[in-house]
Amino acid sequence: MGRPGVVMANGGDEGADGAPRRGRPRSIETTNAILQSAYALMATTGLAATTIDAIARHSSVSKMTIYKWWPSREALLIDAFLHHAAQMLPLPHASSGSPAARARRHAAAYAEALQGEFGKVQLAVISECISKTGSAELFYARYLQFRRDALIEMIAAGQNDGSILAEAPPQDLYDAIYGSLFYRYVFGIAPITPAYARTLVDLVLRPKS
């Protein structure tokens, strides 16, 4: 399944509504240059300085091309964050251990990422969405929903095979883990470490020993 505003496997691309756009397919190399430039600018100069003009200069891609491929600056910033997150925090593969073990690794990696530029950029992008649109719905639709659904499915698989003993709905278990990590990060309540994330996963999921 393609993602809104990103390159599809066949070389084409989708519009904001998920429907394939007509016309010349995107260049993957050019798309990556735009996304990498947008993320690099967000991480180094801040969100306010990450304008379409700045991204165009940094990536050596015309503004016309950028505006053609993204419906808004906010959509581009989210896709740039998604592009980086896919490399830094790939979704756990089914062959990489039990659902609980995969959940521990992913949550620990997320906790570690929050301590660096990744956490700052994520919070800045969410704040930008809320300030521009009044909600974080755009961030959820373009970034979080796909990843959340995949991890919920992983937790449900663990419940079905008996390796996860927690009986609550898998979406509630996911929210309890990642909501807690993000809540602690935003408000600086306590240090977030990979060890804490792994302990939290075990507390919430109650994996079978």
Rank of each mutant, 00 (worst) to 15 (best):
M1F: 12
M1Q: 13
M8S: 12
D13A: 15
A16K: 12
G18E: 09
A19R: 15
G23N: 09
G23E: 08
P25F: 15
T31A: 05
Q36L: 13
Q36V: 09
S37L: 06
Y39T: 07
A40D: 12
A40F: 14
L41E: 00
A43F: 10
G46Y: 10
A49C: 07
A49K: 15
I52D: 07
D53I: 07
A56R: 10
R57G: 02
H58L: 09
H58T: 12
S59R: 12
S60M: 13
V61C: 06
S62F: 11
S62D: 09
S62Y: 11
S62N: 10
K63G: 08
I66D: 04
Y67S: 00
K68C: 04
W70Y: 15
E74W: 05
A75F: 13
A75L: 09
L76T: 07
I78S: 01
D79E: 05
A80Y: 10
A80S: 10
A80K: 10
H84W: 02
A85Q: 02
Q87T: 08
Q87A: 01
P90N: 07
P92D: 02
P92N: 02
S96R: 00
A101Q: 05
A101C: 06
R102T: 00
A103W: 07
A103T: 07
R105A: 01
H106F: 14
A108W: 06
A109W: 12
A109T: 02
A111D: 00
A113E: 08
Q115P: 08
F118D: 01
F118M: 03
G119L: 08
V121E: 06
L123G: 04
A124L: 02
I130D: 02
S131R: 14
A136C: 06
E137F: 04
F139Q: 02
F139N: 02
A141F: 09
R142M: 03
L144R: 11
R148F: 11
A150M: 05
E153K: 06
E153M: 06
I155D: 03
I155Q: 09
A156T: 00
A157N: 06
A157E: 03
N160S: 13
D161V: 13
D161L: 11
G162H: 11
G162R: 12
S163C: 14
S163A: 06
S163M: 05
I164N: 07
A166M: 08
P170W: 10
Q171I: 01
Y174C: 04
D175I: 04
D175F: 11
G179E: 11
G179Q: 10
L181A: 06
L181Q: 01
Y183V: 09
Y183F: 15
R184K: 13
Y185K: 07
V186I: 14
V186D: 05
P191A: 08
P191N: 07
T193G: 06
T193P: 01
A195K: 12
Y196H: 04
L200R: 03
L200P: 00
V204Q: 09
R206Y: 07
R206E: 04
R206C: 03
R206A: 06
K208Y: 14
S209R: 12
